[in-house]
Simulated scan of single mutants.
Amino acid sequence: MLQPTPCELWPFDPSCCLLPEDTSEETITRWRRVATSILWMASGRRWGPSCPVTVRPCRRSCLDDYSGAVRWGTAGPWIPYLGRDGKWRNARVCSCETDCSCTELCEVRLDGPVHDIVSVQIGGETLDPASYRVDNGDLLVRADGACWPDCQDMAAPCGEPGTFCVTYRTGLPLDEAAIAAFSALVCHLVKGCGGGSCGCNLQRNRNLSRVSRQGVDLEFEDRTAMYADMRTGLPEVDQWLVLVNPYRQPAPSRVWSVDYKQPRVTTWP
């Protein structure tokens, strides 16, 4: 699924910015929006929060609870495993009960990392947040002793009887280093939007590499090469980018399996 830019602007700390007194909030908001997109993409599209997405989990097969041996060639695809009792069964992909716990643990795997859960609806009921938790950044675990529905009516909209919908946001939480780098970039952009009337603060982005005094020769690094390296030329920003995305990955690595059934997502209307 394509990942859009974050829906929320990243937090801005103006304490070290020294913006001109006549800078309007509209100007700051505009460049916060630009800086959010730039750093989100340059850091590997991993930081949140994203826009809320609603998924409708379901198991691969309603025969997952079948207690007998596997009858090969029946009822759709299988991910077989050998149980402790010596019988072959179909592995659950979501809404599963793990054997890693001393007690029954009912869980749903979400496409993470999960930033937070907005709501969980079963039929027309919205569950209390205390009745579930998130483990490992992608496992929605039922914590009230009940279990997630095995099947649901995919033809009915969320909130109708027989439906199961999870609305959540993805992305890693921003720390103080991320906020500091973001604020430095916002200040740089705001000061540069005045067309040179305030000094622009753009000299920091020229990256002077060589000077000849008598002939007054100045040599600057190629900006296009710097941008191709996913850097901005601002020390505070580039230091953060090097630490969080040292290999300049444009997006998080993903592993896809033809045997894993993704939760259904309604994309329109």
Rank of each mutant, 00 (worst) to 15 (best):
T103N: 05
D238T: 10
W88R: 08
N245Y: 10
L39N: 01
S119Q: 11
S61H: 10
G233L: 02
P250W: 04
Q214F: 04
N136S: 14
E176T: 15
G162Y: 10
C17P: 01
L140D: 02
S253H: 12
H115P: 06
V237E: 01
E160M: 11
Y168H: 03
N201V: 00
A228W: 00
D153C: 05
H115W: 12
Y81A: 10
N205C: 06
P113Q: 14
Q3H: 09
T126N: 04
R56L: 11
G171A: 10
T126Y: 09
E8A: 15
V216Q: 12
C51W: 15
T170L: 05
N245F: 10
Y81E: 11
P80C: 08
L110E: 01
Y260W: 14
R60S: 01
Q121Y: 00
A155L: 11
V141A: 04
R213C: 00
L139W: 15
L185R: 02
H188L: 14
C96M: 09
R204Y: 00
P173K: 07
G76I: 08
D13P: 06
P6A: 10
E8G: 04
A228M: 11
T103Q: 12
K261R: 13
T54D: 05
L19E: 04
P173D: 07
T170V: 13
Y81G: 09
F220M: 03
S253P: 03
A130W: 00
G171E: 02
P161F: 07
F220K: 02
V70M: 15
L140I: 06
P49K: 13
V237N: 01
W256A: 12
G196E: 06
R248P: 02
L208F: 00
C200D: 15
T267W: 14
G124K: 02
A180G: 11
Y247F: 12
E236C: 02
A35T: 05
D99G: 05
T267V: 14
D238Q: 10
Y247M: 08
M154Q: 08
V211D: 00
R142M: 11
C17T: 14
W240K: 09
R92L: 07
A156D: 05
W10T: 01
R84T: 10
V216A: 12
P161Y: 02
C96G: 13
I122L: 12
H115R: 14
D13E: 12
V237I: 05
G68H: 07
A143W: 03
L234H: 09
V237A: 01
V255F: 14
T36V: 03
L243N: 13
R210M: 03
S212F: 00
Q152M: 08
Y66E: 08
S209K: 04
C58D: 09
S257W: 08
A177G: 12
L2N: 08
C151I: 13
C102I: 01
I79S: 06
G159I: 11
P52H: 10
N205F: 00
S253W: 13
R60K: 07
D116Y: 04
K261T: 09
A42G: 03
T5I: 14
V108H: 08
